[in-house]
Design a protein around this nucleic acid. Structure first.
Lengths: 220, 220
DNA sequence: ATTAATACAGGACAGATGTCTCGGAGGAAA
DNA sequence: TTTCCTCCGAGACATCTGTCCTGTATTAAT
């Protein structure tokens, strides 16, 4: 386990005797890091990569809750409210995750106030952003949410400004709408010269306009 | 300070030397317990009464986030993300609140892992419910949200089941819509015999129907 | 090559919701 | 009492968004 990497991300150093109990696991894109309904077995710390959090609705559709980069902790809600995993965490890039098994937390870290401060900071941050996005989601029309989605998935690894559309259906359920409506908005943007559609991809021609439409809403 | 009351609500006992530093403050209905933009000065523990959490939008409207009863903690987000108060907490009933001044937390409780566990549990619980309501809010039409609002504010203290009409504007912004649309829905419900409007009040005639419409959504 | 199956964009329509506006009720001032 | 002002409910209209459906293109099977 790379101590100094963890230290640089989370500003916390494990005592020597714990490092052997900690697990570092890689995840491939589209692989579930946590799956809703599972029993939680530890506290997960993202070391590298990006993942998305989504939840399954009664309708069977999924709704995007957020994208996460490090520092980001998984499993804390479940452990402290003592419930099954509530949301799916799915890697969207190759990820590395440090897992602290639940027993290790219970026996060694529960009484470590520095470690608890780390968890408190992260939970408070997640709650803060959830509060913000809750309002935004309730008050933003679909075109704003779609623009926000496109701006959110734009990342340094997307060097070209193409976004695969082989999953328009996914995008639709992720932002809580239908593919029909996405198409309507994309057509409108195409006519306005903000994007162009070719084959199975969307090219964003006017990023500044796109950012303007998104009204600074982001899913992160 | 009533030790045993706090113990029974939060399952935590303060050490003797702290009780003199803790403050218990009463709040009247409509009084701000915390006001967005203020500097936070401590951790607030609700002992009795109910308050609502709302946030101010760029538009100047406010949006209802939730109603809270004990056990409920305020100020934790702000302290751990080190930011100004993000949401208004407004008493809706006479409330009693125990305030732990920030210095007291910093010097005595920050290193108290039992106390930190209490905070972690509460934050995780808030995040869990925020996650759930975020989805629900995004996907529920206004009639469901209005019914949910009415079901939420129904409490033992509201012996009469009347809602003042002069606050329809407030209700509208609280659930993120307009008074016009509220009126439309109320008219529909009146025609269906679910409610009746008289003078400046609304009487709910058919609570079971109202609960059915609300689809179990609640602002708490 | 022809046919069948699938997927996808978009037309048509309906329902939900916001904005603008007006007419009536009630209260305050003259 | 008359006039004026304010507030409220609701009509009219526009926009947003979901559902249903169709025509076309692409792919798969024969």
């Amino acid at each position: 386990m790379n101590q100094s990497l963890f230290k640089s991300i989370y500003d916390y150093t494990f005592t020597q005797d714990l490092t052997s109990s900690l697990i570092v696991r890689p995840f491939q894109p589209n692989e579930y890091i946590l799956k809703a309904g599972d029993q939680i077995d530890g506290i997960y710390f993202l070391l590298s990569g990006r993942y998305m959090v989504s939840s399954l609705e009664v309708t069977g559709k999924e709704l995007l809750l957020r994208y996460c980069q490090q520092p980001s902790i998984m499993g804390d809600i479940e452990i402290f409210t003592d419930c099954l995993v509530v949301s799916n965490c799915i890697a969207v890039e190759p990820c590395e995750v440090l897992i602290i098994p639940l027993e290790v937390y219970e026996t060694h870290l529960k009484i470590d106030s520095k470690f608890n401060q780390l968890l408190l900071k992260e939970l408070a941050y997640k709650l803060l952003t959830c509060t913000i996005s809750s309002r935004v989601n309730a008050l933003s029309p679909v075109n704003v949410r779609l623009a926000a989605y496109l701006c959110t998935v734009e990342s340094p690894t997307h060097v070209n400004q193409y976004i695969k559309t082989n999953s328009l259906d996914d995008v639709a359920s992720l932002i809580g709408t239908t593919k029909r409506h996405i198409n309507r908005i994309l057509k409108d943007w195409t006519e306005k010269g903000i994007i162009s559609r070719e084959d199975d991809a969307i090219e964003i021609l006017d990023w500044s306009k796109m950012k303007e439409i998104s009204e600074n809403v982001r899913f992160e």
